[in-house]
C-alpha cells in the first residue's frame, strides 16, 4: 500500500484514494473546498516522491517547480513525503467594507485586504470564514485600480458560506482571503483578437472584471459578453453592462434568459447556446467560460469544435464544495 509521510508520521493510502482523502481519513487537517482540482485550497508541497502531472494542472509554473500540487487530484503510484500543510501562510486578514443586494439572490460583497493583492482580471480568491470553512469567489473588481476586492455571491438555499455572506456579515466584519489563483484570466494582446465571454449566474463576476480590464487596456477587437440566467432578476448587472455597451463600439452585451417571461431587451435561450449559435467560426478567438460546471464543460467542447484553439479557451467551472451526491441538483441551484 502506498505511504504518505507528513511531519514524521506515515499514513497508508489506498491505491485509488487521493492524497487529500487519505490524509483526512487519518485525521490530518488539510484545508480543502471543491475537491475537483478547481479551488486550489488543498495545495500541498512534495519534498520527496513522484507527483503525477495531473495533480499540478492549472498551477503556476513557479509552484510546479517547487513541488506544489493539489492533494485532491493526486493519486501517485509510489510513496510521497510532504511538507506539513500550512494553514495560515496562504491567507491574510481582510475586512468587509460593505455588502449590497443585486437582485433577489446575488449579493455584492466588497472586502479590504490588509495588504493589496496583485491579481489578473478573472482570477479568484479563497475566502476563509472565522470557523475555517473555505469557499472560492471570483474577483469582479478591476485590478490595479482600487485595493478593495469585489465579489458576487449567489445565495444557495442551505449553502453554508453563501447564506452567511449574503445574509449575516456586515461592514467591519473580519474574514480571511487567499492569494489570487486560477488560470482563467485576461492578459492584454497587441493583435486585435475577438473575445467571447459566456457566464451563467455569478459566472458573470470574473467576466465583468475581464471585460472592463480589456477595455481599460485598449483591447482591439470585439468583446462579446453573454450573461445567462433563468430569469431577468438573475441578470444582476444588466444596467451597468448596457451602459458599457453604449459607451464602447467594440463591447457587446447580450443578456439571455432561459426561463419564461423574457423581457423585450433580453434574448430567449441559454447563454452558451445563443452565443455559440451566433458565431460560425471561432478560429483565432479568445473564449472565456465561467459558472455552471455543466455549461462550462459543454461550451468548451463546442467552442473548440468551432475552431477556437485549446490554448485560447479559458474556463472556470464554479464547482461546489464537497457535494458529490445530488451534484446535479446542487449545480442547478447554484447558477440557474
Amino acid at each position: 500500500m502506498p505511504k504518505i509521510t507528513v511531519a514524521g508520521s506515515s499514513f497508508d493510502r489506498a491505491a485509488d484514494e487521493s492524497v487529500l482523502d487519505a490524509l483526512l481519513r487519518h485525521g490530518v487537517a488539510v484545508p480543502n473546498s471543491c475537491r475537483k482540482g478547481a479551488c486550489q485550497s488543498c495545495m500541498m508541497r512534495a519534498m520527496d516522491g513522484y507527483v503525477p502531472a495531473e495533480a499540478q494542472a492549472g498551477l503556476k509554473e513557479t509552484f510546479v517547480h517547487e513541488g506544489y500540487f493539489l492533494a485532491c487530484q493526486c493519486r501517485p503510484d509510489g510513496d510521497l513525503t510532504l511538507a506539513s500543510p500550512d494553514n495560515n501562510a496562504a491567507f491574510q486578514p481582510a475586512t468587509v467594507v460593505f455588502t449590497e443586494a443585486l437582485g433577489e439572490t446575488v449579493h455584492r460583497v466588497v472586502l479590504s485586504p490588509e495588504t493589496p493583492l496583485h491579481y489578473h482580471a478573472g482570477q479568484f480568491i479563497n475566502l476563509r470564514r472565522p470557523d475555517g470553512l473555505i469557499r472560492s469567489y471570483s474577483l469582479a473588481s478591476l485590478p490595479g485600480t482600487i485595493p478593495e476586492l469585489e465579489i458576487h455571491v449567489k445565495r444557495l438555499p442551505g449553502g453554508a458560506v453563501s447564506t452567511w455572506l449574503c445574509d449575516t456579515i456586515k461592514a467591519g466584519d473580519p474574514v480571511e482571503v487567499s492569494a489570487p489563483a486560477g488560470t482563467c484570466f485576461y492578459l492584454p494582446t497587441r493583435e486585435p483578437q475577438n473575445m467571447l465571454l459566456i457566464g451563467t449566474g455569478t459566472g458573470l463576476a470574473p467576466l465583468f472584471s475581464i471585460a472592463r480590464d480589456a477595455l481599460h487596456a485598449g483591447h482591439q477587437g470585439g468583446i462579446h459578453l453573454y450573461h445567462g440566467s433563468r430569469s431577468r432578476d438573475g441578470l444582476y448587472r444588466h444596467h451597468p453592462l448596457r451602459d458599457l455597451h453604449a459607451a464602447h463600439d467594440n463591447f457587446h452585451y447580450h443578456p439571455c434568459v432561459s426561463g419564461r417571461d423574457v423581457p423585450d431587451d433580453c434574448i430567449p435561450g441559454r447563454a452558451d447556446a445563443v452565443a455559440l449559435h451566433e458565431f460560425g467560426n471561432l478560429a483565432g478567438w479568445r473564449v472565456y467560460l465561467c459558472g455552471l460546471p455543466a455549461m462550462v464543460h459543454a461550451a468548451r467542447t463546442q467552442a473548440y469544435l468551432k475552431g477556437a484553439s485549446l490554448a485560447d479557451i479559458h474556463a472556470d467551472a464554479f464547482e461546489l464544495a464537497g457535494r458529490d451526491e445530488n451534484r446535479g441538483a446542487a449545480d442547478e441551484a447554484a447558477t440557474g
Binding site: 467542447t301 473548440y304 469544435l305 485549446l310
Partner: peptide
C-alpha cells in the same frame, strides 16, 4: 505538438 493537438483532436472529435 500543441499546434498539432489542436488540429488533430478536432478531426478526431468530428
Amino acid at each position: 505538438v500543441d499546434a498539432a493537438v489542436d488540429i488533430f483532436y478536432r478531426k478526431v472529435l468530428t
